[in-house]
């Protein structure tokens, strides 16, 4: 790593810490931005690096929300009574109970989702290409329907969690740093992971799975581990979202296949598939675009979003990073020599 890069990373980290204090009115939006970054980065783990386009990663988000909610409620009350349609009338959580719930909820959600990914992956990774995409989408939709009919967790009415027990602004910072912390850890982890043999192996699976297998890579194991790592992180941000949203229901907030479930794919396509920075840049551009249109073009926001997707697909098929790599290969450490053009090294 060059000195310039080290400085760049330090500046970015400092900005991450300073952002909620620089823009205090936008703390919630900034927190959501980190959520988008995390789901995009995790989507790219399988979609970009391994060549398995999942449309069902939202399953981990929804499941994370529910697992965390059930854990944090279950520590204090009877879950069925708390979530009953007639209302259990139990809403007292001491700060200690609340924060224990958040901590254990996040951890439990991450672990549970990682396990789910192992089990589901075992079934689904037999599918390739569009079949894998549709299969995973089916899992997410089915899970939403199942949960919405499961009375123990409140069925279609969802769950209402307690409000953050202390000061309001402090609460916003709390959730911002939970999201941002998860995002930073994930980024550092992936930066390391993609440089290891593991990273090379999943790239090999993307490029030619048969050949990878012939080379002696146990492809199923790599696929399962990759997806479960993705599931772990999505589960954690799902858990944080549950506490941040307070009230959520299964079909439109938890297993929201058509919103966040698609947005994460759009972010990655926009930023550039299979790159480390692509999902981050895509998430930032997408989120800013979405917030601006939802605020200033209300009524036309879906049209604007559709236009963005069309423009991305037509003009930036490789995403922003891909476009840049094409225009400015020297930025990516690629030296173009007169006679012997080498392949991109850092892609």
């Amino acid at each position: 790593m060059t000195a310039l890069k080290v400085i760049l990373y330090i500046v970015l980290l400092a900005f991450t810490v300073a952002a909620p204090f620089l823009f205090p009115d936008f703390r919630t939006q900034l927190a959501t931005l980190w959520l988008m970054i995390v789901v995009s980065l995790t989507w790219d783990m399988t979609g970009g690096q391994m060549g398995y386009n999942s449309l069902g990663n939202i399953f981990f988000y929804g499941t994370g929300m529910y697992v965390a909610a059930v854990i944090s409620i279950g520590l204090v009350y009877d879950v069925a009574e708390y979530t009953s349609a007639a209302g259990g009338g139990m809403n007292d959580f001491t700060p200690v109970q609340y924060f224990t719930g958040v901590g254990l909820g996040m951890l439990g959600a991450g672990i549970f989702c990682a396990l789910c990914a192992l089990i589901l992956g075992y079934i689904l990774f037999g599918l390739r290409g569009p079949y894998f995409a549709i299969g995973t989408l089916g899992v997410a939709i089915a899970a939403g329907e199942l949960v919405s009919n499961w009375e123990w967790v409140g069925g279609g009415q969802g769950i209402t969690l307690p409000v953050y027990p202390a000061d309001l602004d402090e609460g916003k910072l709390f959730f911002y740093f939970l999201f941002a912390g998860t995002g930073v850890i994930l980024f550092i982890f992936l930066r390391w992971l993609y440089g290891t043999r593991f990273g090379a192996a999943i790239n090999a699976i993307r490029d030619d799975e048969e050949k990878a297998e012939a080379m002696g890579i146990h492809t199923m194991r790599y696929k399962l581990v990759t997806w479960s790592m993705a599931g772990f992180f999505v589960g954690i941000v799902g858990a944080i979202s549950a506490f941040q949203l307070i009230s959520f229901e299964p079909l439109e907030s938890a297993y929201q296949t058509i919103n966040l479930g698609i947005f994460m794919v759009v972010c990655v396509l926009l930023g550039g598939k299979g790159t480390l920075w692509g999902p981050v840049i895509g998430a930032i551009v997408f989120h800013v675009f979405k917030e601006v249109t939802w605020n200033y073009l209300l009524g036309w926001q879906w049209v604007a979003l559709g236009a963005l997707i069309v423009v991305t697909v037509v003009y930036f098929q490789d995403g922003i990073m891909g476009w840049l790599a094409h225009r400015k290969p020297e930025w990516f450490g690629v030296r173009v020599e007169k006679n012997d053009a080498t392949e991109g090294a850092d892609r």
Binding site: S84, A85, A86, G87, S148, N149, G155, G156, Q157, G158, E249
Partner: peptide
């Protein structure tokens, strides 16, 4: 319907 209002009607 599977929503808070109708579920409470049912309850």
């Amino acid at each position: 319907e599977n929503d808070p209002f109708s579920l409470d009607i049912r309850a």
